[in-house]
């Protein structure tokens, strides 16, 4: 089992390496930091632009492979992600923003998973009953609403609430109230309130997706021989469903989580931008508009690591849940 996981890990490392190089090559050639400097007022001389670009390891006259080499060496030796186009440290930005994003990503996806699995299993057991149909319709509507639109709708709702009551009932910008006085309790409450809408816009999509999927795997299990065996032993239907049914039906979900993380990550980028969170997603969009190659690569690296980590986690989870893949 350890061997199996070690092998998966090796594969992911190889993927990561190739992927990061491709991301670097793509960003470095598609973006034009030179034009960013040339557009400055007053227009700097060609030599000075060249000097600045070289200092930032962004000079397009240096071959991409060489620039990548410099970047990778700094990263491996010093853990240094390079300089932004404003000549500040990418690491600083990264360090600040990564927690903002992770908070949203983790809470949003875990909440979506738990609710989705529970809802899907429940829906399957009550197949074709009113509650099943209601949940199905609800998921379909949610699945047909792009994340950014869902976020916008939630935000508009909050704005409407504010306009109606004259005060901000549910905050819809940023992740904390600036300059809030009070103890840790007040801060925690403030954070949770700020988390509410962005998390919802991520979790609701997850809930819809996972519940559909879980409903399918659970329906499979409902007709299985071993569930019948469990009942033939003398377990009641509900005991058998939970102990033997749900336990088995949850296995394929782990792969599903890994796949859908891509979508959630993208969704998080939109959500951050819409709710004014200074996270990785917002940074990415801003960096592209500023032709900031190193920042773009940093976000890509983050995305690749998160996606692969979730893939690896899914493998671990599958191995833990399913004795058949362990041998």
């Amino acid at each position: 089992m350890i061997r199996y996981l070690a092998k998966r890990f090796g594969y992911y490392a190889a993927l990561l390496l190739v992927a990061v190089f491709l991301a670097y090559a793509l960003s470095a050639s598609a973006l034009g930091p030179r034009s960013y400097f040339e557009a400055k007022q007053p227009r700097p001389s060609a030599a000075s632009v060249d000097r600045q670009l070289t200092a930032l390891n962004l000079n397009d006259h240096t071959p991409v492979v060489e620039r990548f080499g410099t970047w990778a060496k700094d990263l491996v030796l010093h853990g240094d992600l390079g300089r932004t186009i404003h000549d500040t440290s990418v690491n600083d930005d990264f360090g600040r923003r990564v927690w903002v994003s992770l908070r949203l990503l983790l809470i949003g996806s875990v909440l979506g998973m738990v609710l989705g699995v529970a809802g899907g299993a429940w829906s399957a057991v009550r197949q074709y009953k009113i509650s099943d149909r209601a949940l199905t319709l609800f998921s379909f509507v949610l699945l047909s609403t792009p994340v950014f639109l869902l976020a916008l709708l939630l935000k508009n709702g909050a704005i409407a609430a504010k306009d109606a009551t004259g005060q901000e009932v549910i905050p819809f910008t940023g992740y904390e109230t600036p300059g809030l006085a009070g103890g840790i309790g007040a801060h925690l409450a403030d954070w949770s309130l700020h988390l509410l809408l962005p998390t919802l816009s991520l979790a609701l999509g997850g809930l819809a997706l996972y519940s559909r999927y879980q409903r399918g795997t659970m329906l499979d299990v409902l007709g299985s021989d071993y569930l019948r065996t469990a009942e033939a032993k003398g377990l009641t239907r509900n005991q058998a469903l939970i102990k033997h049914g749900l336990r088995t039906a949850i296995i394929p979900m782990s792969t599903m989580f890994a796949y859908s993380f891509l979508g959630i990550f993208t969704g998080a980028a939109f959500t951050e931008t819409i709710f004014g969170w200074h996270g990785m997603g917002e940074w990415f969009i801003q960096a592209i508009n500023e032709q900031d190659v190193n920042s773009v690569v940093a976000v890509n690296l983050f995305a690749a690591v998160v996606v692969l980590a979730s893939g690896f986690l899914a493998d671990v989870l599958t191995a833990a849940l399913d004795p058949r893949v362990r041998t």
Partner: peptide, 10 residues
């Protein structure tokens, strides 16, 4: 490995 969104935006 990459959200296609990132690549497309680049």
């Amino acid at each position: 490995v990459f959200p296609s969104f990132l690549i497309i935006t680049i």
